[in-house]
Nucleic acid binder design. Structure first.
Lengths: 117, 117
DNA sequence: TAGACATATCAGTCACGGATGATATATAGC
DNA sequence: GCTATATATCATCCGTGACTGATATGTCTA
């Protein structure tokens, strides 16, 4: 039998792990550009490629990732696959992020710990 | 002179870059555990080390990163440095993230594209 | 069924960034 | 000033994950 403390530890660890994965899913300019492109309307992979400038395999890979994470969902229509945001609350998340950024923008911008890549 | 389109492109690129950096700052379990520890009260580095189980240099490194990004601010008090969340909206961000996760939790959990490390 | 188009997968390369151990800096007390 | 404690920095190693080019799968049209 596990103590309450241990149980709470595990719950917390799981929460952190999930949050980490979610944020990691969002911690990529390519994926963010895809999500942004999908903000207003569903798009085919070709359209996404055209808008974002990503290579087709690259876009496809990111879409698979986003899809597996549930952030995006794809629907086959003939030869095309139309992707859409699966949760509109992503927009809220971006709005909140931008709020945070307007307050700490310079800081994040000038932080040299990791690049923009 | 730049066209409007080009200007908008650059603004968008900057936005994406900043968002990417913000999310990357949050895309690490160690940093998330630090931010979580600081959610209720300011803490010294030693306390953070004790709570999170991180090594002292590692915690210090992450704190520098978080500090440079403006997510956290430190204040020297004698031999100690007390860190605090610099923006309480981080809590809102985590709440919103957890909302998203409860809807897409399984998906993110089982997504094999990147590990929990 | 053949050929064209849309998307997905695969193998390989490469850089970023997180962790560690050792060490440096700084502040307090004696 | 000397020692102990608290925190920061440094060099290094190593794994993860993003990108590319080639290729496979799948779907439509003729």
């Amino acid at each position: 039998m596990s103590s309450n403390v241990e149980v709470l530890e595990r719950i917390k660890d799981t929460t952190f792990a999930l949050r980490t994965k979610l944020f990691r899913g969002l911690a990529d300019a390519s994926r963010l550009s895809i999500l942004d492109a999908l903000r207003t309307r569903p798009l085919s992979v070709g359209q996404i490629v055209a808008i974002t400038g990503l290579s087709q395999p690259n876009a496809s890979n990111h879409l698979r990732c986003l899809s597996e994470c549930g952030l995006v969902s794809g629907e086959q229509r003939g030869r095309f696959v139309h992707y859409r945001l699966s949760d509109q609350r992503l927009n809220d998340l971006f709005l909140l992020s931008d709020e945070l950024l307007t307050e700490t923008a310079c800081a994040v911008d000038t932080c040299g710990n990791y690049g923009t890549s």
